[in-house]
């Protein structure tokens, strides 16, 4: 097989892999021209196919780092232990300048000021409802259900993630870095999009755009777009890579996948719906290609059963997906 023929095979592999490709007649005609072309095409296509599957299942980490015990490529859906307590009517003493809502995400709750010496603004979302918050500087935080953040009105670019999941879109201000505290960890950012997940004492940071510095006062970790870290209190952090736009799928109003494992889809849906969606291990590796609009699913979660071709039944606060 000449180099040109091999290049042609690659060129066709590229064209055909696009879901919008429709020129099958031309592809047929090319294949028919030489019996060696079929196998060459298959080799190129399958090589990329298998590597893409491996990369989806196992987002990479740099060599030389300690192995992770939890496989971050398969994000375990958060099972929230939070209980929304209404102890009396919630006080809506918000400063309109500090907090505003974007349209499209209904249902948010604010506790009034905490009974502590420092007057903090607490954002706590109930199970099943997300909130989008815009800060005075224009930064945005999308908070998943069953999460709790605190803001300090005296330090507008400082936020604490106590638990749950939030995506930060931070406006650029080099004179005033945006700081997020999660447990004993500090994440410092100048202008970026990143996600923080904090559950049961472990914090995950993943960067979609820009760069953040984690724990600058201890062992600083610089994370670029597409990189993330699992932060532990008692041992060194573990780095990982994730395709940037897979970060925060759950916060968009439409989630798109090309061959993503069901465990990933379920994890994103858990974030979007704010309720845990568990996947039976037998079907966890099944691939999903398609696009899910979040609002209709939020309104009628049972439709997921048809969309994902699974059986779905209630399980605690959320659902469990099993094979048909």
């Amino acid at each position: 097989m000449s180099d040109n023929e091999a290049d042609d095979a690659v060129a066709w592999a590229v064209r055909v892999s696009d879901l919008e490709f429709t020129d099958w007649d031309a592809f047929d005609a090319w294949l028919a021209g030489d019996p060696a072309r079929g196998p060459a095409y298959m080799d190129a296509t399958i090589a990329v196919e298998e590597l893409a599957a491996a990369m989806t299942a196992f987002p990479s980490r740099p060599a030389g780092l300690p192995p992770v015990s939890a496989e971050l490529g398969e994000i375990v859906p958060l099972r929230s232990r939070a209980r929304w307590t209404t102890g009396g009517a919630w006080r809506g003493s918000l400063s309109a300048a500090a907090l505003a809502l974007a349209a499209g995400i209904a249902g948010f709750f604010f506790l009034g000021q905490a009974e502590t010496a420092r007057r903090l603004r607490i954002i706590e979302t109930p199970l099943g409802q997300a909130a989008r918050i815009t800060l005075t500087d224009g930064s945005q935080i999308v908070v998943a259900g069953a999460s709790r953040l605190t803001l300090d009105p005296d330090s507008p670019r400082e936020v604490t993630v106590e638990r749950g999941r939030a995506i930060f879109t931070v406006t650029h201000d080099p004179g005033s870095p945006f700081r997020v505290a999660a447990g004993s960890h500090r994440i410092v950012d100048v202008g970026t999009v990143f996600e923080i997940v904090r559950i049961a004492g472990t914090t995950n940071v993943a960067v979609a755009e820009g760069a953040v510095t984690v724990d600058p006062a201890r062992t600083p970790i610089a994370l670029d777009a597409g990189e993330g870290a699992v932060l532990h209190d008692d041992r060194p952090a573990e780095l990982f890579f994730r395709a940037p736009m897979s970060i925060g799928q759950w916060s968009k109003d439409r989630m798109s996948y090309g061959g993503a494992p069901l465990t990933q889809v379920a994890a994103d849906l858990s974030g979007a719906l704010g309720r845990p969606i568990m996947v039976d291990p037998g079907i966890g590796r099944r691939r999903f290609t398609g696009s899910l609009a979040v609002a209709p699913i939020r309104a009628r979660p049972q439709e997921l059963a048809v969309l994902l071709d699974v059986r779905m039944h209630r399980d605690g606060d959320g659902w469990k997906l099993t094979g048909r």
Partner: peptide, 28 residues
């Protein structure tokens, strides 16, 4: 395989890597 594949991709250049990841992993 995944770890090395990511390295191979990054080695092709930042834009090419981004194009590939957006297309094949993110499904655009």
């Amino acid at each position: 395989m995944s770890t090395r594949a990511f390295a191979v991709i990054r080695h092709q250049g930042e834009r090419a890597a981004r194009v590939f990841l957006r297309h094949r992993l993110d499904g655009l």
